[in-house]
Design a protein around this nucleic acid. Structure first.
Lengths: 313, 313
DNA sequence: AAATAAGATTAGAAAATCTTATGGGTTTTA
DNA sequence: TAAAACCCATAAGATTTTCTAATCTTATTT
C-alpha cells in the first residue's frame, strides 16, 4: 500500500510548480535553487514515465497528465501543511486570545492582567468578553472562561474560582435602613441577574421566607453582574452578586454586605482550552498564572483535568 | 504557504506507523530498517515540539496530538498515492480490459483477436461485451468500442469502422423468391434491430416506396444484430445488417445480399479510451492494432483525436 | 533469571539533494 | 537587430539527509 507513495519531495516541488507555472517562482517559494526544482521534477517525470509540463513559447503549461496529478497533490499537501501546523508547538512568545464572560473579565481578570503582562513580556494577550460560549476549536480563541460544565473531548476544563453569592449594597443604604432581619430587605429595591439560579427567591427560601407574597417588592433584573454592581454603587438597592466581583469594594468599604446569609449555591468559573492547541505553551503559562491569582480567593481546592503536555495519563 | 510543508518523509513514516502502531511493522511496510523509522519520527517530534507516540507497557499508542496529526496525514498520503498511481505509466505488458457491443465483439473483434495476442504475447486482453456504455474513468474498462458520439473530456474517441447497412438473406431464400424489385422483399419476413435508425422503413423510403401500407408485411424485431443474423442464417427472412458483420458469410456464399440498395446511413464504431490512463502504453498498442485490422474494411478515412502520448497539441 | 521482543541510539556508509556554473532557447529592450 | 533579460536544462562537485548494522535499554514472557 504505502510502497506507492514515493518521490514525496519531488511531488511537493511539482505541486508548487503546478501552481506557479514557473520553476523559478516555485524555487523561490521553496527557498531552493531553480536547478533543484528542475531536477526533482525531472526525477518525477522519469519515475512516472510521463511528461508533466511542456513549454509553449514564453510560458510553461501542464500536460493533461500533469493536470490530473496536480489536482490530487494540491489537496494532499494542503492537508499535510494544515496537519503539521495544527499540532506544531508555537514558541512561548506571541499572541494569546482569551475570552470570558463580560463581568468576569472586567471585574476580575482585567484588573489583574497587568501582572501577567509583567511576568511574560513576550506574550501579548488579547481579551474578548462575550456572553456566549466560544468555540475553542475554531482557532479564534485559545482560552475561554465561563461558568458552564464542558463535555467536549479534547477540551481541558478546570475550576478556576468558586465564589459565594452575597447580597450587597451601598454603605449609605445599609445605614439608612439598618438591616436586622431578612425581611428588612423587602423595604428596598432588590436587584438580580436573569439566571434561573442566584435569585432572591432562593435566598429568601433558604431562610424559610416567601418574599413573593409581598407584591409590593420592588426589584430590577439585569442581564449582567456588572450592571447590577453599577446599580448598587449608585445607592439603589441590594444585589445578589458573587463576592469576588466586589472584593475590593468590600475591603475599601465602598460597598457592604447587606446581610450575613449567603446563597448555598456558589458560582464557579472554569478555564477551558484545547489540549492540543499549538499554543499550548502560552496557554499553560496563562493558566498557571490564573491559578496563582485565584489562590486564596477560592474556597474549594482547584480541581484540574489531566495535564496534556505529559502525554501519558 | 508551502514553507509549512516540511519533514515529508518523516510525516509519511509517521503516518504508516500510526496505522501499524509499531515501528517494526511500519519499517517492514516501508522496506527500511526499524532504526530509520525511529529516527524519522524522532525528527518529526523534535520539529513539532510534540510527543507523538508513547509506550504503555507492551504496546505503543498515539498521544492525543499524534491522533490529530495522524488523521490529517492519513488522508493526505492516501491522496498522494492515488494521484501518483493514476498517472503513472504501467509497463506495456499486463492486462487490458476491453469492452464493446455484443455483436461487434463476437462478430468482428473475437475472430481477429488471436492475431493481437500473437503480436503482443505479454498483453492479456480481457473482453467484455455489454450493451451499455462503459465508464472508462471507473478503471473497470480500458477501452470501449461503441457506436455513440462521446462528448466527455479526457476521452479520446476515434472512428474505427464505418460500414454499410445491407439487406441480407440466406441464398436459398434469394433463389426461391428471386428479388427483382424492392417490393419483392415484402413477400417474406423482414427482420430489423430495434434502433430508431437502420430500419426497413428508411430503406423503402429511400426508394420511394411506402411498405407500411401493406399491412400483411411480416417482420420481426430483434435486439441485437447477432440475433438477426442467426435468423437469416436459418433461412427465415431478410435482415438489414452492417456489412462487416457478415463479410465472411458473403464471401463464402453462406449469406447473400438480397438487394443492391444499401441504407444511406452508415453505422460507425468508435474506439474510446481515457487519454491519461496509466495503461496508455497497452491501450495504444491495442488501438494501433485495431486500426490496422479495420483498414480496408473501412470506406471512410479513419479520423483520430489528438494523440495523447505527445503532450503538445 | 534467562529469553524474547520492541524501541532507542550511534557511527559510519550510502544515497539523495542542493548549489554553482554554464548553455541554449525566447522574448524584450535599446 | 543586437543586446539584455528570462527561463529552463544539465553537469559536477559539495553538502545534507537518510540508511544500515550493531549495540543498548526496557519491559514482558517463560
Amino acid at each position: 500500500m504505502s510502497n506507492r507513495v514515493t518521490h514525496l519531495k519531488a511531488a511537493h516541488y511539482f505541486s508548487v510548480a503546478s501552481q506557479t507555472l514557473s520553476y523559478t517562482k516555485a524555487a523561490k517559494q521553496l527557498h531552493v535553487s531553480q536547478a533543484a526544482v528542475s531536477q526533482q521534477i525531472r526525477l518525477l517525470e522519469n519515475y512516472l514515465g510521463v511528461v508533466l509540463f511542456y513549454r509553449s513559447g514564453r510560458d510553461m503549461r501542464l500536460t493533461s497528465q500533469g493536470q490530473v496529478l496536480a489536482e490530487h497533490l494540491d489537496q494532499a499537501f494542503e492537508h499535510i501543511g494544515k496537519g503539521l501546523e495544527s499540532v506544531k508547538l508555537e514558541p512561548l512568545e506571541g499572541t494569546l486570545l482569551v475570552s470570558g464572560l463580560q463581568s468576569f473579565v472586567s471585574l476580575w481578570l482585567m484588573p489583574k492582567l497587568w501582572r501577567f503582562s509583567h511576568l511574560h513580556q513576550n506574550i501579548n494577550v488579547k481579551l474578548f468578553s462575550s456572553d456566549e460560549r466560544e468555540d475553542i476549536h475554531s482557532g479564534k480563541i485559545d482560552i475561554s472562561i465561563d461558568n458552564l460544565i464542558n463535555h467536549q473531548d479534547n477540551i481541558s476544563q478546570s475550576l478556576l474560582l468558586s465564589s459565594d453569592i452575597i447580597p450587597i449594597c451601598a454603605p449609605e443604604l445599609a445605614k439608612s435602613i439598618s438591616f436586622e432581619h431578612p425581611t428588612d430587605l423587602l423595604k428596598c429595591w432588590l436587584i438580580q441577574v436573569d439566571t434561573p439560579i442566584y435569585r432572591w427567591e432562593a435566598w429568601f427560601a433558604e431562610q424559610q421566607i416567601s418574599p413573593l407574597r409581598s407584591k409590593k417588592l420592588l426589584w430590577a433584573e439585569v442581564n449582567s453582574w456588572y450592571m447590577g454592581i453599577s446599580a448598587v454603587k449608585a445607592g439603589h438597592g441590594v444585589f445578589l452578586c458573587p463576592r469576588f466581583m466586589v472584593q475590593e469594594e468590600l475591603e475599601k468599604g465602598t460597598l457592604v454586605q447587606a446581610f450575613p446569609h449567603i446563597l448555598s449555591n456558589k458560582i464557579n468559573f472554569y478555564v477551558n482550552f484545547a489540549k492540543n492547541s499549538p499554543r499550548r505553551a502560552r496557554i499553560e503559562a496563562f493558566v498557571d498564572w490564573l491559578r496563582e491569582e485565584s489562590n486564596g480567593q477560592n474556597d474549594a481546592p482547584i480541581k484540574t483535568g489531566p495535564h496534556q503536555s505529559l502525554p501519558w495519563p
